[in-house]
Amino acid sequence: MNRIFIDVHVLQTVPPSNLNRDDTGSPKTATYGGVRRARVSSQAWKRAVRLAFADLLDSSQLGERTKRVGESLAARIKALDPALTDDEASALAAGAFTASGLAKADKKKTEAKDVESGYLLFLSRRQLDNLAGAALEASRAGTTLDKAKFKALANTEHSVDIAMFGRMVADMTDINVDAACQVAHAISVHAVDNEYDYFTAVDDRKQDVAETGAGMIGTVEFNSSTLYRYATLNVDALQRNLGDAAATRAAVEAFLTAFARSVPTGKQNTFAHRTLPDAVLVQIRDTQPINMIGAFETPIRETNADGRVRLAAEALARHTLDVERAYGEQPIATWVTQVGERTAVLADLGKAVSFRELVSGVGEQVTAALGQPA
């Protein structure tokens, strides 16, 4: 099987917003090309993608990342045997996780109940279901779920999000999962200066003339930008993690849809910043992934005649061709979904299609690459 990488390049304009805040509440930024850029961290967009998966995949194909592992497992045990009391189900769950070494019972409590892991633990829902069944079976046999059995059940039937984004378990490294997907921090193609919105709130019950002024005042920091977003999928690694070609195709199609259509929800009620990309460029390569951020090392400076989106599209198209010519990097296939005349230049890079056709076209290519019938 050939190595297959799927590179996803997105140009997306967002209005005044604060999609991803730092520890002071300010929009995250980065210096690139000598100027300050708007930035949205890869973690923020990966979480947005994971949340979007809920509308695209069955819940059994997804995972749960939580410290409240005892509570999650206890609910599943109780569902399997409704005759158990809540405390009995909690005790069984606690026993399973403490035996594995991934959670510790609270010594201050007389009974182990609702144990928590010391860090966020990422398990697929199928893995949790299997662990619940094994814990209940062990209890009925008068034993406990041992560490070896726990490892075996926690290292099979990975969910799509675990297969995509990986899993690191510090106390049980042999169930770690290498991520098949890499997501870059999105940055603006131009320089930005953060601005401040000074706002007031009026007390609805204070309407008399003697009471003047606002009930409260505050400020919200924001910026607006045209972002370059990039992600890459290693299809071979994804299939290894999922173990099934059909599941791999479904995961690829769900990721493309979620990555293009999702937006982090930071300050969403304040700014209503939900937009769709100006352009999505997807390329399949058999050599290595290529991030085309170099197109914007020189920041875009819009003019009266040409706005940021048009100039960004031209820069991306030009840089992509320059890199491919210089290194002999010809993609296996390229699809482009672009909105309007401003991004029309990107259509010259590959097949211009609707986004739905792009997703299905990539899916068909993945199926062919994995040697499965379409």
Rank of each mutant, 00 (worst) to 15 (best):
S159W: 03
S159H: 03
V160H: 02
V160Y: 03
V160L: 01
D161K: 01
D161R: 01
D161P: 02
I162F: 06
I162Y: 03
I162P: 05
A163S: 10
A163Y: 01
A163C: 04
A163Q: 00
M164V: 01
M164W: 12
F165G: 00
F165H: 00
F165Y: 00
G166I: 00
R167P: 02
R167L: 02
R167S: 04
V169E: 15
V169R: 06
A170V: 13
A170R: 15
A170L: 13
A170S: 15
D171V: 12
M172W: 10
M172D: 14
M172F: 13
M172L: 14
T173C: 04
T173E: 15
T173W: 06
T173F: 06
D174H: 09
D174A: 07
I175G: 07
I175K: 07
I175S: 05
N176S: 14
N176Q: 13
N176V: 08
V177G: 02
D178M: 04
D178C: 00
D178R: 05
A179P: 00
A179W: 00
A180K: 07
A180T: 11
A180W: 05
A180F: 13
C181H: 02
C181P: 03
C181T: 14
Q182Y: 13
Q182S: 15
V183C: 02
V183W: 00
H185R: 03
A186P: 07
A186F: 07
I187C: 08
I187A: 08
S188K: 06
S188H: 07
V189H: 09
V189M: 10
H190W: 05
H190Q: 10
H190V: 08
H190N: 10
H190R: 09
H190Y: 07
A191D: 08
V192R: 02
V192A: 01
V192G: 01
N194I: 12
N194H: 07
E195Q: 13
Y196Q: 08
Y196H: 09
D197P: 08
D197G: 05
D197N: 11
F199C: 05
F199G: 05
F199W: 15
F199Y: 13
T200H: 02
T200E: 01
T200Y: 02
A201L: 05
A201G: 09
A201P: 02
V202A: 14
V202C: 04
D203L: 04
D203I: 05
D203S: 12
D204Q: 04
D204Y: 00
R205F: 15
R205P: 00
R205D: 09
R205H: 10
Q207V: 14
Q207A: 11
Q207F: 14
D208L: 08
D208H: 11
D208C: 03
A210N: 14
A210V: 15
A210D: 14
A210S: 14
A210Q: 10
T212Y: 13
T212W: 13
T212N: 11
G213V: 06
G213M: 07
A214C: 04
G215Y: 06
G215S: 10
M216Q: 13
M216L: 12
I217V: 11
G218I: 04
